[in-house]
Design a binder for these strands. Structure first.
Lengths: 194, 194
DNA sequence: TGTACATCAGTGAACGCGCGTTCACTGATGTAC
DNA sequence: TGTACATCAGTGAACGCGCGTTCACTGATGTAC
């Protein structure tokens, strides 16, 4: 079968997009190449025309996840009429994000996984994190650019830990209560206006 | 072979202790029954005399990890001459804890894993978390017991996320800088005296 | 005191299964002549 | 215009491997008589 010129690129992008969702849902070991390709109505053999290993796909999928979530949060910030941190915190620490890891923040779902991966994967994570910090620093409290960037990282690290812990909980109301008090805390701690 | 009366109990405890370390190091899927038993110079078949499944062991191992870390942190608090939160934050957010997940906090290494487990495992996590909150609440800022407990949970959730993110980083100095600014932030936010 | 038997923590072969990866192959299209 | 050939995304069988779990078995000791 011969495919149109842009076909390969599109397939590759579809694999990354699906992998990004599935890894966030099930962890790096929770979904295999065969399952991933099947979800796209392809067979596992073709995978290696696009990626040299599962590890490489994992790194790209983490990157895609960062871009995905970052775009959503930036959109929330843009519609906030100057209360960007409040909007970002509300968009991050809510029941829907908690209930849908597959479409959510990769720090919350994959950071512990990434920590166990080879340096190459951790570098991809680090790059994505730096981009996060750069984008969100302007909305954060802090007297210098460096301080605002450190605060942006602290904000996301803290929110991610809170979201993950809420997800690890069994009781629905405990979960909601954790998210609620965290929203209040992170807004108070990181919003520019105080 | 016939063993002394307390032998079985001791073997069981050794399995849980080893599993607790190995799961924290490698994640729930990162170590198997055979590997675990081999580390204790036993064979995999005997495992099922002690546990009905790997899931059951995982739940008990998470519990053991909580007790382990909680005891260390309470010890740090006890030696702090009234600056308990400062001592706990220093004991949690340091390079050594970052470098040794196997002996470290299970929220940081296993919460994302637990979030994907059946309700039974999440209940075990929740119970352990409540015990954490109860123990550390007295050291936290807050006007009511409820507020102090909510703060204790926010403190550990935030610190765990920060530690996990630091571990997922590739650059040693970025890691150190994240930990340092986080220590300052969490002390300032949660210590009683301010 | 001596003998027959029950106990049961631990052994190691075997089960079915899914994993990541490789590879010979397919076949519709583009290209060379 | 017609024919022979190259391309290469995708197919599906096969690889070796490790997984969680089961099970018939072992054998030193405790117990019954």
């Amino acid at each position: 079968v011969r495919y149109p010129a842009e076909h390969k690129e599109e397939t590759r992008a579809r694999i990354v997009r699906t992998a990004s969702r599935e890894f966030r849902r099930s962890g790096g070991a929770g979904i295999g190449i065969a399952g991933l390709m099947k979800e796209l109505s392809l067979t596992h053999g073709g995978f290696y025309r696009h990626f040299k290993s599962k590890d490489q796909l994992f790194a790209e999928a983490v990157d895609e996840a960062f871009e995905d979530v970052s775009a959503k949060l930036m959109r929330a910030a843009a519609h906030s009429r100057g209360r960007e941190i409040e909007a970002v915190v509300d968009a991050y620490l809510n029941d829907s994000h908690c209930a849908h890891p597959a479409e959510g923040c990769p720090i919350a779902s994959l950071a512990a996984d990434v920590a166990r991966q080879p340096r190459k994967v951790r570098l991809a994570m680090e790059g994505a994190l730096e981009r996060y910090a750069e984008r969100f620093a302007p909305f954060c409290a802090g007297r210098t650019e460096g301080e605002r960037r450190r605060n942006a990282i602290l904000l996301f690290a803290g929110m991610a830990g809170t979201l993950t812990l809420a997800r690890a909980t069994a009781d629905e109301s405990l979960r909601a209560s954790i998210l609620e008090s965290a929203r209040e805390f992170y807004k108070r701690s990181f919003a520019r206006s105080g």
